[in-house]
Design a protein around this nucleic acid. Structure first.
Length: 170
DNA sequence: ACGATGATGAAC
DNA sequence: TTCATCATCGTA
């Protein structure tokens, strides 16, 4: 039986959460329709010292959700045309999140939000069934699967942080 | 290789 | 209130 990932799963070190999210399922329910896909690629954004993290410039209207409790969605718009989906990690007041970069066949955070119906309406909402977007354990043996890691994408501006290998994928 | 396209945050 | 920037993508 698929198990909904509880809020406390996210209230842990971000690098650990990021890797363990691989192989789990992003699930969305809209009315009677359920959309589902396996998480294949993620990136970690951790704390104010991480120059690539949006929260590195401190608490703002956009980033305040990252300072909040773990297990909440952080959705932001980028380049005027796309949305990116993140889930907040770590304890309250420690800003960090995991960007979901690939789900199933869908590569790229912008395309994920297009395929799932994700926009700022779910920003700052918890990842649970009531919200209509959550994460499930597939009940499959993903533990044994090899995880690859690499530098994050699109963060060349982030000084030495750009070289951190905080992208994880199968 | 590049343009679309608008929210965001910092400067003024 | 302006202005540069941007965790992207499709077209070429």
């Amino acid at each position: 039986m698929p198990k909904i990932i509880p809020q406390k799963f996210f209230n842990r070190p971000t690098l650990k959460v990021a890797q363990e999210l691989l192989g789990k399922f992003l699930v969305q329910k809209i009315g009677k329709k359920t959309v589902r896909g396996m998480i294949m690629e993620v990136e970690a954004y951790i704390g104010q010292k991480d120059k690539a993290c949006h929260a590195s410039r401190g608490r703002t209207e956009r980033t305040k959700v990252m300072f909040g409790k773990a297990g909440y969605w952080y959705v932001y718009s980028i380049y005027g045309m796309y949305y990116c989906l993140n889930v907040v990690t770590e304890q309250k007041d420690y800003p960090a999140a995991v960007l979901i970069r690939s789900v199933g066949d869908i590569k790229g955070p912008g395309r994920i939000c297009c395929h799932f119906k994700i926009d700022k309406k779910i920003n700052e909402k918890p990842a649970n069934k009531k919200t209509g977007l959550w994460i499930e354990d597939g009940g499959v043996k993903t533990k044994t699967r090899q995880i690859k890691r690499a530098k994050r994408i699109g963060v060349d501006y982030a000084g030495k942080c750009k070289n951190k290998k905080w992208r994880f994928f199968f």
